[in-house]
Design a protein around this nucleic acid. Sequence first.
DNA 1: ATTCTGACA
DNA 2: TGTCAGGA
Length: 135
Amino acid sequence: MSDEIRRNMALFPIGIVMKLTDLTARQIRYYEQHELIVPARTAGNQRLFSLNDVERLLEIKSLIEKGVNIAGIKQVLLPIEKNSDDATVINEQTEVARKELTDSDLHKYLKRQLRTKRPGQVSLIQGELSRFYNK
DNA sequence: ATTCTGACA
DNA sequence: TGTCAGGA
């Protein structure tokens, strides 16, 4: 259960997330407006993304590339629960941690992701999914 | 140096 | 979506 906290802990600013996902800041902010992601905020109103946020963004990116629009993605990506979101609350501890571990922890995580091959979690009937495609 | 919101030649 | 302005 402790891993869940680490996973939902807000760590990196948009700049790093951009490199991680190859998405532009514009896109990332746009997806947030459509509630596809709900990154935490610092006292200075800066976005802080968790590993889960990054994963969701990668899923979003994948779907966008396949031509799925926002409406379709909202059906695929489970809506953000209000309860488990409290882990993204920012306190002085995470604030300090963020400054220290940003790249090192990230690389550690990415390596784990590389060997933890996971099957495309997307599971929707093609017919139903096609309803959300742009063309 | 970075990021944020709003707006559109 | 890109990009620029103007502020934090």
